[in-house]
Every structure is written in structure tokens, then in C-alpha cells.
Design a binder for these strands. Structure first.
Lengths: 210, 210
DNA sequence: CAGAATCTTGTATAAGCGTACAAAAATCTT
DNA sequence: AAGATTTTTGTACGCTTATACAAGATTCTG
């Protein structure tokens, strides 16, 4: 029992350290350059350590993606809870997709390389789909009762596309800042809504675009 | 002279064949899985042939990307030339970004992997930037005299983001068809324009969304 | 402080990659 | 057709990678 407790503790510590190191390497070198050796070196450990705590490199990677998604989602959920109007909830969702000081070129690139890998590795594709479903259900919670199913779908598609497209742009040219990206998405959404749902959504004009 | 002509001919043939084979491999296995050996096997030649006609693998790759970009752009330019109204020109640009029967998951994925690589390889990044500049100058030609610089920039950003986002979505979940994607982008643009530029752009209501 | 369990290291292995290159085959020249 | 040139082949080299594993270091137990 005592041994059990200690073993578990160290094991968890190392796993977290390795995942954190993997995350740093990931952001710096992309999915491609995230090698086992580099992860271990970044964590200040020897090359073989990774195989001791993880079944393989993929396990580290999935752990990392899961970890980050959870952080992101917790943030969005917290913001959603604090929001009082429908528009504020929209803002929360959008801002949650551009996490504070995480809308940077390296991160955009890293995320992009995961998307690219998802096309080959079904495991990644599953994570990707989960991500989209969550965004869509968040949006559904805002538009609940305002839109019919097809209009909800269209709106979700367009909003998701806007967000993803701006991330992609960030990765490519890095000429859009976080605040500008959020403003663009929100004003895009406003345009969509003003074009037919004037009465459905409480007018966002009384809010600030921040 | 005769030798010159013949040599050049064979050389060009092989280069084209290899680029075509590279393209097929690229679509099937992604940028990652596009190895020299596979390209040669796909072309029905021996592994060493690639080094004979190209300086390295990258040269094949850049040739491939350039070739495809040129095809795409020629298509857009032809459509633009045929368009008579501003809205028709917009349609041409948007449709040109969803080439006929090329809006498929494998292609979306392949394109995505190039974007991801562009974050590491500056050569790719250059191609990427050229691509964006062309889209932007095309859009500028439509909005010429209607928008000021900042508004043009915003519109270009949003439209490009919409297009890219839908491609990314295609790669991830493959739940959007080509026609639907075009419709979504065009109606998104319409919303944007209706929200302040009613008089500037000839009303698109008299056009069909096709 | 032994002895055992746990943790860590460093290296070895095997696979896959791009590329170079000698030799073989094909083609052209005269 | 013989010799020269171009084209193609197959292989081999060097490098990088993930992973396995024996041996050493550390920590816990009694």
C-alpha cells in the first residue's frame, strides 16, 4: 500500500512532466519535429525514459492533446457560466477559441499539424471530431429555440469555419492579432444574425465588441 | 542540336511524369507519406530516377505545388474574364477556390499538410503567401473603389478565413459538399455586404446562388 | 544499514528515409 | 554496326527515428 502510493505519485509526476515537455517541444518544432529524444531532453531526462512511462510516443501525444483540450474547454465553460446574455455567451465561445496569449504563430502551426495528421491517423480524427462537436453544442446552447436544425447547422459551420480560417491564417502569415481575430469573428456573426434574425437574438449593438 | 532536342524532350517528359506521380502519392499519403521511393514506384520507375532528374525531393514538391497553383489560377482568371457583374466576379473567385470535383477529403488533407509544413519550411511559407496575395488581389479587383483599404482588408480576411475554414472542415469531418460550401461562403459574403454596403455592390438578390 | 523494489540511464537494434553512384540498358551518331 | 552518349537500374551509405533492454543509480523497507 505504501509502496503503491509512492509509485503512483512518481509515475504521475513523470507523466505530467513528460507531457509538459512534449507540449513545449510540440510548440517549438511542430508535430513532425516532436521526437522521443527531444521530448526527453526537454524534460531533462534520458532518452529511454519515455518508453518506461508510456506505451509509445503516440500515448504521450494523445495525452497532450487531451490535456490541452480539457484546459480550453474548462475555460469556455467558465466563461459561459459567467455570461448573462445570449450575445455574451457567444462572445465567451468565440473568445474561448482564441485563448489568451495562445493565438500565436507557433501554436497555430502546431495545431495545424495535428489537423493534418488527423487525415492519416484515425485516432487524431476522433479527437478532432470531438472538438467540433463541442463547439457545435456550445453554439447550439446559445441558439437554442431561435434556429431550426438546418439554420443551426449552417451557422455552426460558418462560425467554425471563420474561427479555423483565422487560425490557419495566423499560421500562414501571422498578420492578425488576437483581438482583431475575435472582432472579425464577432462582427461576422453579427452580420449573419442581422440578416434575418433581428428579433430573435437580443440586439448586440448595446454590447461592446471586446 | 538534334541530341539537344531529344534530350530536352525526354527530360521534360520524365519530370512531368514524376511530378504527376508525386501528386498522386501526395493525395493518397499526404505530404508526410510522400517519399522518394513511393513517388518512383508510382511512376513505374526505379528508386534512383528521382535524383537523376531533380536536385532533391523538395524540387519535385515545389514543382508540384507550382503546377497545381497555376492550374487553379488559370481557372479563376478564365472565370473572372467571363463574369460580367461584380457579384458574378465574386462567385467566380469563390468557386475557383473550390475547384470542380477537387473538394474532397484527401485533397483537403493534402493541402492541409502543406500548410502545416509551411510553418517549418520557409520555402513553403513563400508559396502560401503568394497564394493569399493572389486571392486578396482578386478580391481587391472586385471591391475596387467600393471599399477603403481597411475595409478591403477586413473583407479579404473574413472571406479567406471562410474558405480556408471550410477546407479544413472538409479535411476533418467531410460533412460538407462542394455546392454547400460555395453557398455558405457566398451567403456569408452577402450578409457582410448587406450590412452597410447595400448601395455599393449591385444587389446580388437577382442572381442565383449557384 | 542491508536488501529489495523502483526509477533512470545509456546504448543497441531495426526500420525508414533521402541521396549518391557504379554499372547496365537503351538510344543516338556517324 | 560500332562507338559514344544518354537514360535507367539497383544498391549502398549515412542519417534519423522509435523502441527494447540490460545495467546502474536511487529510494524505500524492515
Amino acid at each position: 500500500m505504501a509502496t503503491q502510493r509512492k509509485r503512483t505519485k512518481i509515475e504521475d509526476i513523470r507523466r505530467v512532466e513528460l507531457i509538459a515537455a512534449a507540449h513545449r517541444v510540440f510548440l517549438e518544432h511542430g508535430l513532425q519535429g516532436m521526437t522521443s529524444a527531444r521530448i526527453c531532453r526537454e524534460a531533462g531526462m534520458s532518452p529511454g525514459i519515455l518508453a518506461y512511462y508510456f506505451k509509445g510516443k503516440d500515448e504521450v501525444l494523445f495525452g497532450m492533446v487531451r490535456y490541452n483540450n480539457r484546459l480550453l474547454m474548462e475555460d469556455v465553460i467558465a466563461r459561459l457560466r459567467a455570461a448573462r446574455t445570449a450575445w455574451a455567451r457567444l462572445e465567451a465561445i468565440v473568445e474561448g477559441n482564441f485563448p489568451d496569449s495562445a493565438f500565436t504563430r507557433p501554436i497555430a502551426n502546431a495545431w495545424l499539424s495535428v489537423c493534418a495528421e488527423a487525415g492519416v491517423n484515425p485516432q487524431y480524427a476522433r479527437l478532432q471530431r470531438l472538438f467540433y462537436q463541442r463547439l457545435r453544442s456550445n453554439l447550439a446552447s446559445v441558439f437554442d429555440g431561435m434556429f431550426d436544425a438546418t439554420r443551426l447547422r449552417d451557422a455552426s459551420l460558418v462560425i467554425a469555419a471563420l474561427i479555423d480560417g483565422l487560425w490557419l491564417r495566423k499560421a500562414a502569415t501571422d498578420d492578425v492579432g488576437r483581438d482583431e481575430a475575435i472582432t472579425l469573428v464577432l462582427s461576422g456573426i453579427r452580420s449573419l444574425l442581422n440578416n434575418g434574425e433581428e428579433q430573435l437574438l437580443r440586439r448586440p449593438a448595446d454590447d461592446r465588441e471586446t
